[in-house]
Amino acid sequence: MNMVESITRPPLRPVERPRFIWAISDALTLAERNLRQIPRIPDELIFSTIQPVIFVLLFRYVFGGAITGTGTSYVNYLMAGIFAQTVIFGSTSTGIGLANDLQRGLIDRFRSLPMAKSAVLTGRTLSDLVRNAFVIIVMWTVGLLVGFQPQGPVLNWFAAAGLLLLTSFAFSWISATIGMAVSTVEAAQSAGFIWLFPLTFASSAFVPTQTMPDWLRAFAEHQPVSLIVNAVRGLLLNKPDFTTIWQSLAWCVGILIVFIPLAVRAYNNRTAR
């Protein structure tokens, strides 16, 4: 076969399908690409897994003895907080990944192709969802090793995992918005993280809120991370609390309703330059 001919005159015909099918397919193509990268930059995944493991060990063995009023063993209390914090921190990789693609010119490449425009964002949020699912499994195992004993029906545990994944997905869109709003990868990194520390620590994730000063307690008891942690904790310890479950779901859906359009707008503004 003449090579040169094959370069310019192959029978190349794109497959015709409805647009929304292609939107899904393109998102999956990009999600797959993002996931393929994970084992090739192992330090990133290792770091993002080791960090919560260190948190588990520190809280379990350093503070565990001193913290009372949890109504159960501290490790049982702690794990819901660890899960929530891990997926929320993990969702920052969405904005960092997007900022990286932008800096490396890959988003220009994608935009020059006749693919679905939405796929860059949906592909990235999907792959981070899968990644967070993996991290939840790792943390669950670590928890069991240090004495975590989930209680009640297994179905509840899956419900807890489902709520955590929804949380991860919602926070990914916040992260995407931040990643597209700031101008460098480094900024995406710090701006993505910094506000999550007060949000996850000033909550019921690691300690009961009763001992906090009143002003802090008012915040801590009503902010979404506490609600999510309480819902997950109830589901894992056989005390499902439907109020916090509904409130958490409402928060996640609310975040998605607000931040999907914001992320899309930030992406459009950013790439229009």
Partner: peptide, 10 residues
């Protein structure tokens, strides 16, 4: 292959 798939080739 990724680019080819994003061009919607089989």
């Amino acid at each position: 292959e990724m680019v080819a798939r994003l061009y919607h080739l089989r």
